[in-house]
Amino acid sequence: MDYFIQQLINGLTLGGLYALIALGYTMVYGVIQLINFAHGEFFAAGGYMGVILLSFFAGLGYIDTHPFLCIGASILLTMAYCAFLAMGVERVAYKPLRRASRLAALVSALGMSIFLSNGLMLTQGVFDKAYPSELIQGGFEVGTVIVSYLQLVIMGLTILLLVGLNILVFKTRVGMAMRATAQDKIMSSLVAISSNRIIAMTFAIGAGLAACAGIMVGFYYGSVRYDMGFVPGIKAFAAAVLGGIGNITGAMLGGLIIGMVEIFGAAYISGQYKDVFAFIILISVLYFKPTGIMGENVDDTRV
């Protein structure tokens, strides 16, 4: 039973991270009905930017005196960086193709993803980059279940971001404009909502969340790699589909479920095939219920 609870906590941590990445997919899909293949790369870029900034602060010596300030500043700067990156990527690879065929947009997105991950490799090297994991150390035990402070920090930050996003999307004027654009671009532009600006903003927000997930994954696993965006990207996409693509609450739920399934699958079925479980869920969801758990009816052009 303790083993089960331990895995449950691990699953929740991982699931929260997947949820953060999945939100980017689902929000972008909501506004332009396109899978942003480069989203995994925003996540990887976030991981790298985080370690660059953290080691920079460490080099300056601030990290020993104000550790939490440094981590907070790193996270914020990284989120800004990735948002900036995503807006540019959108302008270069997606905006010119808004009226082109879907195949063209997909190929362009895929090309962008390859370009970004190789750009990271060229500037940062092919080897793993170690994270200063010793910054958030320790944990406490309940019986034999170990909960590390890092896991608590990750869960807390995830919840904070998710709540913040919900407030942004459902309570503010910007969020209302976003939802309006997702529903009907022409109609919303008639009421003076600049759909280009909203789309760019959606990319930026999604990338910011992914960047934050990238930093936390770096802390959690202790290192980052230039191609680390690929597999989590697909898994987060599976989460977005599972929750019903285009649906924000669904993506959060889907992320948690995918994280749990992966951890429990690895713990009870097979550790070698842990990456396969997410794919199997993705394929069965698409086969049996393409609208996902919380998705509304999806018309033909979307599926």
């Binding site: 270069v92 690879a93 193709l97 190929v107 362009s108 090309g111 962008m112 390859i114 370009f115 190789n118």
Partner: peptide, 9 residues
């Protein structure tokens, strides 16, 4: 990657 984007655009 760049070629794919440029060609499509």
């Amino acid at each position: 990657g760049l070629a794919m984007v440029v060609m499509m655009v």
